[in-house]
């Protein structure tokens, strides 16, 4: 009896230990929406694109745009906070249905997920302490800094790779917001981040002594990301974004959120 029990226990544990590699799970957004499906929009705290107001409600340029666009297609929206590094995993697993969070289009993302056409232009800028600001005018001046902070895997990293900085000067941070702390404390001389974020953070609160400089990096584009299996809904959102670009919706939001 005991032996049989032990064998059963062994097998159960073995089953728990074995890891399986096949991935399946066909998750899609139903279209048209007949059963009141709620679209889960993946966001992070990223002023002014997605952030919370005093009551904990998600607001921001992207949050409003997402609510409006999905609302027109007949969906309610639920915002789900995600970790940016694992955003594609969140999408594939069905934790969220789309990423709408100031996401810069890159070649890797185009490979991995379905992207809409760009709806907003972004640019990388240099963040520096106000006292040092005039030292950095062009991209060539970045080499003068003793160290440069940026978010690992971000668009900033791609533009910095083009400058062939010394390895020791590069400080790859976990999040964009960490780079502001790097510069503020003097641990790094400058940071390279999204202009939209720099605009809202520099000069605020503890970051009052920071400023950002446009050193002439090439312009980039923000897009919304879906699973490859949701190409149809992605196309519908695309049509709406094109409409919003011409009917003044996007311009109004830009003014509202100071972009």
């Amino acid at each position: 009896m005991k032996k049989i029990l032990a064998v059963i226990c062994s097998l159960a544990l073995l089953a728990a230990t074995v890891t399986m590699l096949t991935a399946c799970g066909d998750k899609t957004i139903p279209y048209p929406n007949e059963d009141g499906y709620v679209v889960k929009v993946g966001v992070t705290l990223y002023e002014p694109m997605d952030y919370k107001d005093a009551d904990g409600k998600w607001i921001g340029f992207d949050a409003e745009l997402a609510e409006k666009a999905f609302g027109e297609l007949g969906y309610d929206v639920e915002f789900v906070e995600i970790v940016w590094e694992t955003k594609v995993m969140s999408l594939d697993s069905g934790e969220i249905d789309c990423i709408w969070n100031g996401m810069t289009v890159t070649a890797e993302l185009q490979e991995a997920i379905e992207l809409t056409d760009p709806y907003l232009v972004n640019q990388q800028v240099v963040v520096a302490r106000k006292a040092d600001a005039e030292k950095y005018v062009t991209t060539a001046d970045i080499a003068k800094a003793s160290s440069v902070a940026f978010e690992g895997g971000s668009a900033a990293q791609s533009v910095l790779e083009g400058l062939s900085l010394e390895e020791g000067k590069q400080v790859s941070c976990d999040k964009q917001i960490d780079t502001f702390l790097e510069v503020k404390t003097g641990s790094s001389d400058i940071a390279v981040v999204d202009k939209t974020l720099a605009q809202s953070v520099c000069g605020q609160g503890d970051y009052a002594d920071l400023t950002f400089i446009d050193v002439g990096f090439a312009q980039e584009e923000f897009a919304v990301g879906f699973r490859k299996s949701d190409a149809e809904v992605c196309g519908k959102i695309n049509e709406l974004l094109a409409k919003y670009a011409t009917d003044g919706t996007i311009d109004a939001l830009k003014t509202k959120y100071d972009i």
Binding site: M20, L21, T22, A23, C24, G25, D26, K27, T86, M89, S90, D92, S93, G94, E95
Partner: peptide, 16 residues
Amino acid sequence: ILVVYYGPALIFGWGF
């Protein structure tokens, strides 16, 4: 933690 949270959905297509 990542395996426990994302594993069931990614491997079997279950919920969270």
